[in-house]
Write a protein that binds this DNA or RNA. Sequence first.
DNA 1: AAAACCCGCAACCGCACGTCT
DNA 2: CAGACGTGCGGTTGCGGGTTT
Length: 286
Amino acid sequence: MGRAPCCDNKGLKKGPWTLEEDKVLVDFIQANGHGSWRLLPKLAGLNRCGKSCRLRWTNYLRPDIKRGAFTDEEQKSIVQLHGIVGNKWSMIAAQLPGRTDNEIKNYWNTHLKKQLRRMGLDEPPPGPTGGCPAARHMAQWETARLEAEARLSLLSSSAAAAAAATATTTTTTSGSAASSSSSAAADSKPADVFLRLWNSDIGSSFRKVEAGHGPPVSSAKEEAHDAVKPQGDESSSSEMDAASAEYQMFLDFAGEELGLFHGRHGGFSLFPPLDVLSEASLDTAF
DNA sequence: AAAACCCGCAACCGCACGTCT
DNA sequence: CAGACGTGCGGTTGCGGGTTT
């Protein structure tokens, strides 16, 4: 595809922004919005390329940017999300209000990477398909579990609310959340994907595994499993292997096929907006 | 006190993707 | 349908401040 070079215009200023430039940019955007970034510098009277303006605004000048040290909660979120989506900084940033992708990326590279190394965890190769398998699987498992629980809980409450409000309902909706979700399972809307998976054979096998062992595969076992086929430890039965494979199918299907764990424009969402979910649930449940 | 080194962060660069014509 | 354009993203670089020698 053809692609116009962006910042090759001679004479455009590069490097650190001055206070005056910042002020011009902020004033202009607050008055007019940013509109087309390419046109913005001309309209605002800045001798910068549009890309530079956008970067300055999104990473530094935006009023909703949270500055200062990352909290423990934020750190945990970053580590967990990184385990799931890899170096998808914008997706991670989307889960941390007020933080920019650039900030998170820098924080990861300068603090967390080192911290993990110090803790004896090898630095995971970035990306959903790489990394410490145990950490990644645990993070994915936890995400999938939370997602499913949230949906079940929402469906349950919305079904109850709708049943109370609508006495004329002919079809019975008083079943369990699972039965509600079963009807939802017939639908193929993205919001119901987790429930569909959760109620599938694959999902039920994982619920069984979780009930007995927590996450499907223990860290040590998984590490060994991934690195070299365990020789002495055959206690990891074929059942366990099958569960592990199904678990991976579950996550891969949700992630790869349906774009739940990644996607360029906000495809990843731990908890989609409630209104969207409730709407979809109500649509399909009733 | 000064040079060397280290570290964190802002900014740049180039690619990828979606939309428009 | 192909190419041009606009934008967003991730990786990398370079500068400035702090620390160590």
